[in-house]
């Protein structure tokens, strides 16, 4: 897996423009980063989160950060960093409000959702229920590396930690997911279907 790299930013030139107070450059940068910010927020916070509010908050924070941008990290790394930092705060707030008890005993299979799409959504909600119970840093490592596709070294740069630490968090996150969801019927069906597809492709 490799990190998403800046597509069109000349970071040094951009840093000069932003430091010079170029409003147009700031707006254009925010517009270019918005899809990444929004996608990462959605993945970090999970289904049902107030993504619009979070997006606005991150853009404000990012705009302020960009005003003092000196080009030491890439613009996209900076955007990821600001987004992740906001994600931590949101998760901390949300976690305090969550009822741990509701997640203690997995809800029964929802018999009214026979379609695969509904099954996928249900499995996704199980994944986020599992992520909700992890330490936020472990959750973020999983989102950045396994879902977002960043290399652990790049994710470590976003987080301001070492690649070894990031790999360790990712490993623990994966183990925790495997352990918690091993007996989940929805997830089990999903994995069996994925493996069956892989077998078919291999046969072809």
């Amino acid at each position: 897996m490799s990190a998403p790299r800046p597509r069109s930013f000349d970071d040094e030139a951009l840093a000069r423009s932003l430091r010079a107070g170029d409003r147009h450059a700031l707006e254009a940068t925010l517009a270019a980063l918005l899809p990444d910010v929004r996608r990462l927020l959605a993945r970090l916070l999970g289904p049902g989160a107030a993504i619009d509010d979070a997006t606005q908050d991150v853009l404000i924070e990012l705009a302020k950060a960009l005003r003092g941008y000196e080009g030491r990290a890439s613009v996209r790394t900076l955007a990821y960093r600001v987004t992740v930092r906001h994600g931590y705060r949101s998760l901390a707030r949300e976690r305090g409000r969550r009822t741990v008890s509701l997640e203690l005993v997995p809800p029964p299979p929802d018999r009214i959702d026979p379609e695969s799409r509904a099954m996928s959504r249900e499995a996704l909600s199980r994944l986020y229920a599992c992520l909700d119970r992890m330490p936020a840093k472990r959750r973020t490592a999983f989102v950045l590396c396994a879902i977002e596709g960043l290399d652990p070294a790049d994710a470590a740069e976003v987080e301001g930690t070492s690649a070894v630490t990031m790999r360790s968090r990712l490993l623990h996150a994966r183990r925790e997911i495997e352990r918690r969801l091993a007996a989940d019927p929805y997830v089990g069906r999903l994995v069996r279907a994925a493996n069956a597809r892989a077998d078919e492709e291999e046969d072809r």
Binding site: L124, A146, A182, G188, V191
Partner: peptide, 20 residues
Amino acid sequence: MSGEHSIADTLAALARREPT
């Protein structure tokens, strides 16, 4: 559960496909 896809990989792939 054995096979080519782990639970974590399968769910990560599912999350990647989820539209923003």
